Amino acid sequence: MQTWYPQIKPYARHDLAVDDIHTLYVDESGSPEGLPVVFIHGGPGSGCDAQSRCYFDPNLYHIVTFDQRGCGRSTPRANLENNTTWDLVADLERIREHLGIDKWVLFGGSWGSTLALAYAQTHPERVHGLIVRGIFLARPQDIHWFYQEGASRLFPDYWQDYRAPIPVEERHDMIAAYHKRLTGNDQIAQMHAAKAWSGWEGRMLGLCPSPQHVERFSEPQRALSIARIECHYFTNNSFLEPNQLIRDMHKIAHLPGIIIHGRYDMICPLDNAWELHQAWPNSELQVIREAGHAASEPGITDALVRATGEMARRLLDLPPEEA
């Protein structure tokens, strides 16, 4: 069983202004001459941390991590203005150009897989390959499953806490009800809604409940950025046309891809990964037994670390023992 590489510090940090409102936190670590890879975090609304660099051999990879608009160390935090999928796709291209990278590997999980696919389909000539986990196709049925009805039937006790801030007469459309509170002027109601929204997600991350996940997702500022930005995106169908990511897979069908998905993922059910694999002839699908959605679950971590080694071996033409 593979585990993370040791934590390393970035050798460069950038505050990259991408418009008149947003400035992105970007850092570089690993080998400056290595195979470029960009870590695309989930949410939308989460952010990167020190662990984000640890899926990659720092001797082989030039590792780029960044916090998306409104997330983590990017400013202003939890801001929804000029914050769409296509703004984020453009941001990735700005980062690539700013760092002088010609082509890179995309590594993304959950919402990060959504954004990786959207970017690759827009700029296929800039992508060596993709490693994607916990696939989220952002279709209406995927959002309905987790935020309206589906997961609610399997976890009615957790669901009760999620729906508590919403009056009975508004529960027929939970996304709209949460959006009203998360974008309203009542800061107490906003934070109450944010903690309930993010707590529901935190409780559902792993196959087994993790107090660490719940605590991390309940931290007030993280909860606010996750809840506000996710709800903003999902209110707008993630700024995608119906089934757009599958429809446009022909644009990147030639690119190598490794898809990793937990068998018992309750946030993004396995059909997301299955349909992506069917539309992507050059992909490999790994279904991880005894795993849910979280990248930190041992089986998922093992598969991701092995995948980065395999991708480096393919692209750098290394013998197996060197990757």
Rank of each mutant, 00 (worst) to 15 (best):
D91T: 06
Y55F: 15
A90W: 13
Q212D: 15
E230N: 09
Q187W: 12
T84F: 14
G100S: 06
G109I: 10
A227M: 06
I188C: 11
W280T: 11
R13V: 15
V37N: 00
N236T: 03
T122I: 12
A193H: 03
H213I: 06
H232E: 07
D19E: 06
P156N: 08
R203G: 14
Q141C: 04
E275A: 09
A176D: 10
M249C: 07
P140Q: 12
S31I: 06
L245A: 09
R314P: 11
G299R: 00
V287T: 13
L285S: 04
T183M: 06
W145Y: 08
D248T: 05
Q190R: 15
P220V: 13
P211N: 13
V305E: 13
Q121T: 11
F107N: 01
L304M: 07
Y119K: 04
C268P: 01
D142M: 02
I300H: 01
H250T: 13
N82H: 15
R216E: 15
A116S: 08
A138T: 15
F39V: 03
A194M: 05
P298A: 03
L304N: 08
S210Q: 05
C48N: 10
S31L: 01
H250N: 09
V287F: 00
P256L: 02
H232C: 01
I226L: 14
R139F: 09
D271Y: 12
V287Y: 06
E322S: 10
P76F: 14
M191I: 13
P156T: 14
A312G: 02
H293I: 11
L35V: 08
V18C: 07
I226H: 05
L99M: 07
E322V: 10
S225N: 05
R222N: 04
L276M: 02
P269K: 02
K180F: 01
S46H: 05
E219W: 09
P220L: 01
N236F: 07
I175L: 05
H128C: 14
V168W: 00
C48S: 02
P320H: 08
W104L: 08
L207S: 00
T301G: 01
Q286T: 12
G262I: 04
T122Y: 10
I143M: 03
E93S: 10
T114D: 02
G112Y: 00
P76M: 03
E310W: 05
L205Q: 10
I135M: 01
R247Y: 12
L60Q: 05
E215D: 13
A194L: 00
L88Q: 15
C71R: 01
W197A: 12
T183W: 01
M174S: 06
G112N: 04
P167G: 03
E28K: 01
H128N: 11
I63A: 05
T85L: 07
V168T: 12
I288G: 00
R171W: 07
G202L: 07
I267R: 10
T75L: 09
H98P: 12
